[in-house]
Amino acid sequence: MTDILLEVKNLKKHFVQNKGFLKGKKSVVKAVDGVDFFIYKGETLGIVGESGCGKSTTGKMIMQLLEPTEGEVFFEGANIVEMPPNDIRHLRKEFQMIFQDPYASLNPGMKVREILREPFIIHGYNKKDIDTKVTELLKVVGLNIYHADRYPHEFSGGQRQRIGIARALALNPKLIVADEPVSALDVSIQSQILNLMKDLQKSFNLTYLFIAHDLSVVEHISDRIAVMYLGNIVELADKQSLYKEPLHPYTQALLSAIPVPNPKVKKERIILKGDIPSPADPPKGCVFHTRCPLVMESCKTIKPQLKEVESNHFVACHLYNK
């Protein structure tokens, strides 16, 4: 039996906005509204969804960069939400993050060497060891030692993302949360980074939480995939069954909406009507019912729960309630 590295239970993040200057009205944006999932050691769980679905917020809560409104995050069995800050600081070396924008996530005033030295300094490594570690790191991500004395602006987007990956790897973490790590990159560079991440996973026995909007990228790298819509997980399954037999109408529409790079394929396309509702005023009942082509009366009032309908295939939809 494989061990569970990370488990998330009923995780919620509600942002409170002040609305109206004098009356002090408040509106609540339910960015993440109760998600549950777990990640096995050594696997890649992909989270996919469109803008505003809460996928990044979920990643940030796991990283403890945002405080959850409610819910628990267990890392190797310990609830890190309730942990005192000092303990979390020590534990942080076990979970690291790779960010979307390799331009914004590297300090432009620091040389690559300084960027990569920082995690070691914070965690009290011996000065002599640090330099060999930095050299090793650069090599592991496919850069050269002469790159160490350059500034971030001297690199291309793909190379910068390699630096970001090196920084995340520095302290030998167990879990890496990668938030849209390739969406700012050109296609030919994107595949380099995806291959690198797969190689590193093997050599360092890493576990990934891979957050992205591009279903083909997520499908390529993940073992299991969670589909999010308006702060909720609507479907969770291993990638083969999710692709071959998507159950939730949203997943079906999402899969059919992707343009296929093959002019001979003529797809049956499900085109969803309208826009994603605002998370400040989400629909009652099932959050997807306003755009769902298969909507029923019960969808408008009762919120469906995520249920296992086939082995390891979870879906939150009334169509599968018997």
Partner: peptide, 18 residues
């Protein structure tokens, strides 16, 4: 170099360099 849905390749072809 683009990942294709439903096509489980372990590695993607990529164009080296920039």
């Amino acid at each position: 170099s683009i990942p294709k849905l439903g096509n489980y390749t372990e590695r993607l072809d990529s164009i080296p360099g920039n």
